[in-house]
Design a protein around this nucleic acid. Sequence first.
RNA 1: GGGCGGGUAGCUCAGUUGGGAGAGCGACGGCCUUACAAGCCGUAGGUCACAGGUUCAAGCCCUGUUCCGCCUACCA
Length: 889
Amino acid sequence: MSSDLLNKAYDPEDVEMRWYRRWESDGLFAASDSSTRKSYSIVIPPPNVTGVLHMGHALNITLQDIMCRYRKLKGDNVLWMPGTDHAGIATQNVVEKKLAAEGLSRHQIGREKFVEAVWEWRKVYGGRIINQLKRLGAMCDWDRERFTMDEGLSRAVRRVFVDLYEQGLIYRGLYIINWCPRCYTALADLEVEHEEHDGHLYHIRYPFPDGNGGLTVATTRPETMLGDTAVAIHPEDERYRDIGHDHVILPLMGRTIPIIRDSYVDTSFGTGALKVTPAHDPNDFEIGTRHGLDSIKVIGDDGLMTPEAGRFAGMDRSECRADVVRALTEEGLLGKIDPHKHNVGHCYRCKEVIEPNLSRQWFVRAKPLAEKAIAAVENGETRIVPGTWAKTYYDWMYNIRDWCISRQIWWGHQIPAWTCAECQHEVVAMEPPGACPSCQSRNMIQETDVLDTWFSSALWPFSTMGWPDKTTLLNTFYPTSVLVTGFDILFFWVARMMMMGIHFMGDVPFRDVYVHALVRDEDGKKMSKSKGNVIDPLTVIDHYGTDAFRYTLAAFAAQGRDIKMSEKRVEGYRHFVNKLWNAARFSLMHLDQGHERIDRGHITLADRWILSRLARVTRSVSDAIDTYRFNDAAGELYQFVWHEFCDWYVEASKPTLYGKDTSPEGMAVTKAVLWNVLRDILLLMHPFMPFVTEEIWHQLPGVEGSIMTASFPEHDDGRRGIQVDPDAESEMALVSGIVTGIRNIRGEMHLPPSLQLNVSVHSREDRLRRVVDAYRGMIVNLARLTALTVAAPGPRPKQSATAIVDGASIYVSLEGIIDFEKEQQRLEKEIAKLAAELGTVSTKLSNPNFLEKAPADVVEKVREKHRSLDEKQQQLAVNLERIKELQTD
RNA sequence: GGGCGGGUAGCUCAGUUGGGAGAGCGACGGCCUUACAAGCCGUAGGUCACAGGUUCAAGCCCUGUUCCGCCUACCA
């Protein structure tokens, strides 16, 4: 039999490797550039080329793969566009580190050689993360893999830069930006991580020119005072109305600086006098602009004090702070020092403290772009799921500020701007200008800065498809169907793609944005290398297999909640994979051919029931994936496969399959049902567990080719005989209720399974008796009985334990072995439980308001509940009395 | 400062128009029943953070309190 090919326990390692290679080589991941089929497209959030697969990727990739595989089974033309981004700062850092190990710096080898070295590095290591994605089973169309530094994508970057410049949406100017002295580059506001630090608020007296009195200012960064060019007070501050001076002396520097009045000053903070350092604080810069103040840069780009800092020149900025404080103390100008919590910005790449610095940089004018991006979400052209994230998106978009896009590094898209060395004329163009359009000089010098990596990522949905050319690929797949991403890059990436997509394509880049959770460690902390709490997805895959890992991620991917991950959790789903594997082994033992059609002529109750449940589950899994409720889909399948198919259907079918109580026709029907249910289970599970389902698929007789090329089941398939069957469901509920009732007694009375029981079922209801009688074989089998008697209520069997189910009394005969004490306790416990339930129901029914105001169907439901509870309780009470009597006999 | 999410069984979490509190794991008891001991059968366990309110009815809606987490922000 074919099941000989299946081992007793599933072994993922060999299976995964084998099938992934096969899928790739058979071209099953390939999308068609154009097709009459419905298009479905996703662009991957490109991982950093320096990246190593982490849990965030694993979740992100798994969810996308689930959708792509699902849509493919549904018959769509699926494009999952893969690739990586060049991660300017991160990659430059990595390669610089490598050079440093050889005793070299990038400045020693020069820009050209350095960029070559990065490409070299990329050639060797750039494929690492891609191979790791493949281990997750990702069905990306690898032949289309893109890299943000590819020539095609670079051309898109230049096109966008030039167009935005010409439209006045890119400009260059001198502003306060965030400067990382370690990475030696400007950063965008988003790239600064704020962290609360315990600092100090230093009070410093700036004397009046006559040497007396003065104004006391409060600051957290005393070293910046060296660059102060004014002290500001609020125009209406009573305290300073009659100071009689309009200047103060800047201590340590001896410079005379003006006292200015500006309503920006908060009178309730500190002393109400604000030192103004236009070159090192964004607010001060604005005040400086308003009042025409000088900007004096005292902290250099290297983090050392500049010559403008006088005797502090050349000092490190933190040393300088200490020294300034010391000097002020000596001069008696330092007042109190209060402890003060304040936020300090850190570089998101290297964690160095950011220095707000005056610098000439390139900016994108964001507001006009943001307006359209806001409108697109407001009018539903793009839907953000879950909807709560839309609010976050709006908040950021409405308060958007210009985006600093220039970086002083070497690895990235060099800004396509040239300045004439002769006449300073500036040219922004796609290609290097041969000569200056103004003075014809051939000495044109290109801007050395490169663009923010996110600038190129923002174009990803269309640059990867060949833009600015008008390609068939764009025509077929833009806008993409959905973007799947974590909320941590909602602003960095999603918002910017929206702005660029709408601006350059005239349409949104994606119809849906599905924002998923973050994966945390088992204590809910963010995983980080420094904390040492990182779980490596590849290790998890090695230990438990990709399918189990993917299922775990899907099962925990509830909308709006983070996932706490631990290997222990994956273990449970490995068991599930194995369960499916063994259910398949069992099924395949009995299947030697395909059974497309089910002849409902000789069908059993179990057959009808499992087909009905299959019909419902198929629909509900489909709905869940369509609405991004992956945990619901995974949960429902788990319940169905394990606790319905395995626990009930397979067990109930065994006598039939082993030929014990059926006709050849009956066996054929059950085999057909088994075949169809297993087949559909494989298809329903395939998006979640691609490998094990493919492996089993190939053992299933009567199917051909890869499961990836099959069709997702219809939920109501009349052709195959699969349909919802409410009668089967209610009859099955009765039968399984009786079986459970008997098992319950067996369990509590500690009766071993080997002991076969004799049971009577009594009921007043004809229908109920008929059903029980009709399916007595199933009850006898599942509850392990020797005999089952069905009768109208009559004399109660003596020496028996009792259970009440759905209007039927079940008597388990315990002739000679009954433990009266135990049975009495059991009944009393049961009665007490019922009494409690009955209490709440009775209270409701005795409330006239409830009867009057609640909808009739609700009232009827509660009445019915009361009737059944009451009857059950009475029956049990009678039985309890009888047990007591028997005991005293 | 502003915003968002969360507090449900020992642990991790579901709970979708308000109408009988659930799952997985763990615990406990019983089983090598011919697919699976990575298994099977059964049992126990919850003042749904706290306090009010709306309602015939609240885990769910409203208000307040509290604790935890995250995002965001130019009060030095």
